[in-house]
Amino acid sequence: MGHLQSRGDRLFDGANILLLGLITLIVLYPLIFVLSASFSNPAYILEGRLWLWPKGLTLTSYERVFQNPFVITGYLNTLRYTLIGTTLNVVLTICAAYPLSRKDFAGRGAFTVYFTVTMFFSGGLIPTYLLIKSLGLINSFWAVILPGAVSMWNIIIMRTFFQNIPVEIQESAHMDGCSNLRLLVRIVLPLSLPVVAVMVLFYGVGHWNAFFNALMYVSEAGKHPLQLVMRGILLQNQMGAMVGASEGSVEQIVAGEGVKYAIIVVASAPILVLYPLLQRYFVKGVMIGAIKG
């Protein structure tokens, strides 16, 4: 016989469903609106006649986006920054977290404290800029990647995950003559796929959305990431060249409205595709990595 809910329980469940449904609508509506606007005639957007579904269905905005060389270049640059940067981030995080997770690593407490201090204090913007300049990294690919090459917060999460792997497995491997490097590659990492996937998601999203390092250290337009190109389009209203109209004209304003929504969709699509693929690892990786401090 199934469990019979009291009237209070039913009211509580109903209120939860209504509240969660309302929150879902609040979150989904802007996403659906942006997607619909990108496929709609820009005139309907400016007139306020677009509410949910596309009106005057057209692909003109996307055609203008992909015909713009700065957008394509920015997209390729962002892909390169994200792929190489995320790979470097994950490798460095593993290299730092694994030794700190080992009880037989002399001085791990001192190193942990030393690294943790960087979470609360930094040199500031001007010293960082002078450092990047003295290293000869201005206007280079590495100026975007290296300043944020590793996150101490992510090191702590991964270190905690490694600490939850049974010590007996590692001791058995050592008894069989397994070196520390082989132990990490052959045993620890295959057991740590959930937390590695979380790190890939964290770092990947960070690189994809990043623009500040490029804004500060890269002045060449050909090396700008997509987010910096979007910043120029959305904030500085540089639509004339993209839509083939004179600056400030009515045609530019109308066409630019559709282009703004199209470029937002283009910039967000890879992350929206990546997240469902890593979602099954996400909760497990974060929860296990946060069990211990």
Rank of each mutant, 00 (worst) to 15 (best):
V196I: 15
V91L: 14
T73H: 05
M175S: 11
L50G: 08
K284D: 08
T160N: 15
H174R: 15
I187W: 04
A37K: 11
T60H: 11
I157L: 15
G8W: 08
Q163E: 15
S122F: 06
V200T: 03
H224F: 14
A110M: 13
G148P: 07
F202Y: 14
I23Q: 03
L274H: 09
L18K: 00
N213C: 05
Y275P: 05
I165C: 00
Q236C: 00
W53C: 04
G2A: 13
V150E: 08
Y29P: 02
V254W: 05
A97K: 01
L183P: 01
Y98G: 01
H224A: 11
Q279T: 05
K103Q: 12
F105E: 10
T73W: 00
D104R: 13
H207I: 02
A241H: 00
V218T: 14
V71C: 03
I233N: 03
E63H: 07
M239S: 03
K55C: 09
G258R: 07
A245M: 10
P42I: 04
L88W: 00
M230V: 06
L278W: 01
L50P: 05
G258Y: 02
M230I: 13
V265T: 08
T82F: 02
A214H: 12
V195D: 00
P69K: 09
L83F: 13
T116S: 15
L4M: 11
H224C: 00
N154W: 07
I26Y: 04
A173R: 11
I126Q: 07
W153Y: 15
W208G: 07
L100D: 13
I157K: 01
S140M: 02
E63D: 01
T128N: 14
A214N: 13
E171G: 01
T78S: 15
S249V: 10
L92G: 12
S179D: 06
V195S: 06
L201R: 08
V185Q: 09
A255V: 01
P42L: 04
P276F: 07
T112E: 12
H174K: 14
V198K: 01
F66K: 05
L278Y: 05
M175Y: 11
F39H: 04
T86K: 06
L57S: 02
M1I: 13
M1K: 13
G244N: 10
T82C: 09
I156A: 12
